Amino acid sequence: MSATRPLHLAAEIGGPPRYDAAWYVELAQLAERGALDFVTLQDSFARPGLDALAVLSRVAPATERVGLVPTVTTTHTEPFHVSAAVATLDWVSRGRAGWLVDVSATPAEARLFGRRPAASAAALWQEAREVAEVSARLWDSWEDDAEIREVATGRFVDRDKLHHVDFEGATFTVRGPSIVPRPPQGHPVTVVAATDGHSRETAARHADVVLVRAGRAEEAGALREKLRSRAAEHGRDPDTLRVLAALTVDLGDGERPLEPGLDSAPRTTAGAGGAHYRGGPVDLAELIAGWHGAGAVDGFHLTPAEPWRDLERLVNGTVALLQHRSRFRTFHPGGTLREHLGLGRPANRYAPAAGTS
């Protein structure tokens, strides 16, 4: 990968649970001022707090460019509703939505719903792959011009341009079509944190963006190549896959002497929870530029240790320095998240190909 390939940056805006929408709006607006590709908002059934997808639907009208990617748990949820909710976020954000696919693995979370016991990781991620597949089909179940809105005849939709998906998975079936018209992006961006073999398989099959945990640039580069190779085996163009290194950043101490860790300067440390950087904005910019320039990753997904403090220092320090060095853009290149990521709008699988009747 050439160092001239665009660098992609994203940030998490979660943290301890907050019940004030203005908090998330301000963080997303800060990320937008830095021209970040997207923000994520973590969520799970194991922690208290507001629903991430609903929160980012509130953030959408208060922002204009930054992508919005909530965690969406595919376990214990209805795939039809998941698809409709993500499509709705894409509509209210005018094409800036994604979803970070996750699963729910614990017996305690299963008891919250009372439908079925906890399943194995293999079964959960198989179900997640099926949810991703049926969601894409549901997004395609309306052709782009299915809405006709004929006032004279009272016809809202051309029924010939609605399609049943008729999907049968291991744990659910969906007929369709969706109740939501095809999203502005065609398919909202699918993000997967590839932390083990099961999630990596889901990422290779369905993700547009993959988050990987790596302690060194060489390790990240090896994971990237494996994901690209696996995607190609599934008939995908590996150049449509964006691989971002997931890194927790603590910018509270400023620049500091190097610590034993991952790479030559600047350094980070790695543990069971993933890779962590502790230091100043300048050294972080060096790390980002070094890994990206070496072709190890397409960018970084950064989780601030202290949401406001570290995101502010990230945007006004690290990102500003990368922009000054012409390593990162100073404005969003388009209006949709797919355009930020350099990804095309998928063709509708059910619509006739151009030039055919």
Rank of each mutant, 00 (worst) to 15 (best):
V209D: 04
G215C: 06
V210I: 13
L211V: 07
G215N: 13
A207V: 04
G215L: 08
A222T: 14
S229V: 14
R224C: 05
G235V: 06
G215Q: 12
R236L: 11
A220M: 00
E219A: 14
A214F: 11
R213S: 12
L223K: 11
V210C: 14
S229I: 03
A232S: 13
L211R: 08
A231F: 05
D239H: 15
T240L: 13
L211M: 05
A214V: 11
A232W: 02
A214Y: 01
S229K: 12
G215M: 13
H206G: 00
G215E: 04
A214N: 09
G221E: 03
L227Q: 07
A222I: 11
G221C: 02
A232R: 05
R230N: 03
H206V: 02
V212S: 00
V209N: 09
L223P: 10
P238I: 09
E225H: 12
D208V: 05
K226Y: 13
R236N: 09
E225Y: 10
A231G: 12
R228F: 01
H234E: 15
E218C: 06
A231C: 09
R216W: 09
R213M: 10
V209C: 03
T240A: 11
E218H: 04
R224F: 02
D237V: 10
E218G: 13
A220Y: 04
R213P: 07
E219R: 00
